[in-house]
Nucleic acid binder design. Structure first.
Lengths: 292, 292
DNA sequence: GAACTGTCTATTGTAGATAAAAGACAAAAA
DNA sequence: TTTTTGTCTTTTATCTACAATAGACAGTTC
């Protein structure tokens, strides 16, 4: 197997959903634009749909014959790209498992465990190395530096620098900048979740990322925006495997966000700085508590 | 060819230099530690030296038979690792050549040009992508974002944040911290170069990196230290291909460094900040001037 | 008994091959 | 004349294979 056809399978599944809502599909280029794939993949999807007697396809005519059933979809685990699988598998090892700092990482062993070739593992490790959790010894193994207290402190130090600066830039954005509308939407979502916190507190993680990324983006600095990847991945997996007091933690963070958002709206530097610092300090505490 | 034996060739050349200075070589493990390679490589070197009748080798006895000649050395171009070759080749293309922002980068074409496999080029691009000059479209090509004015401004913005903070940490280091001695050595080198600026101004580049890296390291923050890689590579190639007014530019920077070093020695926050800002501002100007 | 050598095994770095996916271009249709 | 389709070529993602290099272990030497 040279290449997994996950792009095809994932696009096929998404196309089935489109199909459920109409009686005929649009042109190939239009479908391609909607699903974000090339025409080659679209044609493979149409061919498969024809085989399954989901549509009758003749040139421009793509008539829907029947509604898709559950068994028409490809299973979810077949639609994940290899790099997603490797990332998840690796993060579980180093965050959840008892991975000691200083441990050696073996490309071959990792590849065997995950059931993939070494090239993909290698490329993942190279990409991942920018997160500062692993380090390469040339011509030899990788070293796991570990998700330690130092790591968390160094990460949050830079985060605070970057976010304070970004928040200040945010206040300077034109009143008609789209970011203000996005901020409104995000604020509304905060109220929605808080109103139903007991059942919806798990939605916080995604909203958190959306909010902070919006702030970072207003810095207009690729290094600041790119750095947010590191924060996002750390918090993402941290939320996923650390559920103690999740409800209280998230409720508190939501309140802090609302105060932070209110401060941004005043456009007052001092208020913004205070609200931002308050939230970041408590986010850091949460992260640190999960480490020891 | 599965793997180039550049490690062997480079270590062999370095070992020849050692050999020129003694009448007998030390044990295999000791040689390995000195040259930073494994015993396997050491034994390959010794075997080769025996073949060339440079030494008589019998177990522990490694008697030098003759001095190495120029033709015993491997040519310098064979001792560069593949990733160094790819990096140089790529940087020449995008910094020196007329590479337009937005241009597509083709792995296969790059590999053919450089005369290497696609795997190595691909891994290089992944590693290089953290410098913010290129960006990947999944399942498709890379985009060259280009060494533009925006890039330089974004880079220097973060640099200023990080270096100001690092300089402040430097002032807080214990008086017996080794960094102070290194600072003394660096200061002395500045004076040496300035005293003979006409013939030695080219030595500035290396000293510049050594000085700023020392400052950044005192932050004890891996993200700040790692970020210096980006600055270093940009300035490295910038100095290499942009020689206009190099003498004046470097002389001025040396003077600014000396003022900065003097400020660090006072350990006075305000003085340090002023000297640091002054130097960084002029470094930014130099970089910007080279862009348009 | 501490360090060194001989020998062997395991892992990394790189090339080459191949299916999946992107994309180019001309002919066809609206 | 603009968009769509049919066909073909190019490029990417990934696997496998193999030489270079690292590293382990037992026997040997000082």
């Amino acid at each position: 197997m040279a290449k997994q056809n996950t792009v095809f399978k994932d696009a096929f599944n998404r196309c089935l959903k489109l199909l459920a809502e109409t009686s005929a599909l649009p042109s190939e280029p239009e479908l391609g634009a909607t699903l974000g794939v090339s025409r080659t993949t679209i044609r493979a999807i149409l061919t498969r749909m024809e085989e399954l007697q989901l549509i009758a396809w003749d040139k421009r005519a793509k008539v829907v014959l029947r509604h898709p059933k559950a068994e028409d979809y490809y299973p979810a685990e077949e639609t994940d790209s290899l790099s997603e699988i490797i990332e998840r598998s690796f993060m579980r090892r180093i965050l959840a498992g008892g991975a000691e700092p200083g441990m050696q990482i073996n490309e071959l062993e990792l590849a065997r465990d995950i059931g993939t070739g070494t090239t993909s593992v290698r490329e993942f490790l190279i990409r991942f190395s920018r997160f500062g959790l692993i380090e390469k010894r040339p011509n030899s193994h990788w070293i796991l530096k570990g998700f330690t207290r130092e790591f968390a402190l160094e990460l949050t130090e830079v985060r605070e620098m970057f976010e304070l600066r970004s928040a200040a830039s945010f206040a300077a954005l034109d009143a008609d900048h789209p970011a203000w509308q996005e901020l409104e939407r995000i604020e509304a979502l905060h109220h929605e979740i808080l109103a139903d916190i007991d059942s919806r507190y798990r939605d916080f993680s995604e909203l958190d990322e959306r909010f902070h990324l919006l702030v970072h983006k207003s810095s207009s600095n690729r290094f600041i925006v790119d750095f947010y990847d590191i924060i996002a991945i750390v918090f993402h997996y941290h939320y996923q495997w650390n559920k103690t007091n999740a409800r209280e933690r998230n409720a508190r963070a939501l309140e802090e966000h609302l105060a932070y958002i209110a401060a941004l709206k005043t456009r007052d530097g001092a208020q913004i700085e205070a609200a931002c610092k308050r939230h970041l300090r408590s986010a850091r505490e949460t992260l640190l508590q999960s480490i020891q």
